[in-house]
Design a protein around this nucleic acid. Sequence first.
DNA 1: GTAGGTGCAAAAGCTTTGCATTTCC
DNA 2: GGAAATGCAAAGCTTTTGCACCTAC
Lengths: 144, 144
Amino acid sequence: MTAEYEVFKEYLRQKGLKMTSPRENVLRAFLGHEGHLSTDDILVASRKLDPAIGQATVFRTMKLLEEAGLARDASQDNGPRKYEHAYKHSHHDHLLCIRCGRVVEFYDPQIEKAQKQIFAKYGFTETGHWMELHGLCPDCARQK
Amino acid sequence: MTAEYEVFKEYLRQKGLKMTSPRENVLRAFLGHEGHLSTDDILVASRKLDPAIGQATVFRTMKLLEEAGLARDASQDNGPRKYEHAYKHSHHDHLLCIRCGRVVEFYDPQIEKAQKQIFAKYGFTETGHWMELHGLCPDCARQK
DNA sequence: GTAGGTGCAAAAGCTTTGCATTTCC
DNA sequence: GGAAATGCAAAGCTTTTGCACCTAC
């Protein structure tokens, strides 16, 4: 079984919750795909493992996975919520092409450092951050 | 009349659209309040100027104001959409307390510069960016 | 006069919730 | 055995859309 499964199980145990078959299938479906997955993508993938899974279970389970540190909210704009893997995936930010939707993930130590300084400056305790850069990718800029 | 009114009118003219009384009232209602306004906040404020205004008009007008560069989407998480002033309000980012909801606006030239370097590194043409830092403000951290 | 705008109400999406039934510990 | 979880369907919210009537240019 995967390390993620163990992490999830332990998280549930600590909370007095149960590891169930639907939860396991949603986790496996989520882990089986990289990138930004909508809740519907996850529902479809989960049903390949168990056709009886309901969408409410996907919503409820993804919320738990987020709390357990296995998933991270990757929603953009006001469309459907999206999740990405969070376990042992180093933190990164996103560069998004507004025309073709292409997403580049990057990590910039300089920016991370500057963000920490902002937290310190205003006396805030950091819990997380979200940065998204929007632009045209080289291909789309060329077509213009 | 305000400079924003002129900007909006000019934007509409260029697009072959009309300046109307409801649009003017939504603009005035929006300009009359600082901070992050939900579409419902704007509806309520607009109705103080003209009780007959419908919410569809607020949605439609705010979309126009955004395109005209007068409003900027300031939505957080997946809740209702929020807008903030954009005209001659220099760009800034947000530091948000996850407990009390307090919002601090800041501007960090170092981060802005680093972001431009990211765009250049991946060959993207910049169109905008969104950064939000989440944490506990000093008051909430003390209460723990 | 006419293209465009408005308010209303209905529809459309996404997410949450109530509940009878089932499942895990 | 009993608390917790599930699937379904209904409800909730926010946002969009269709349409008959109105208005700015």
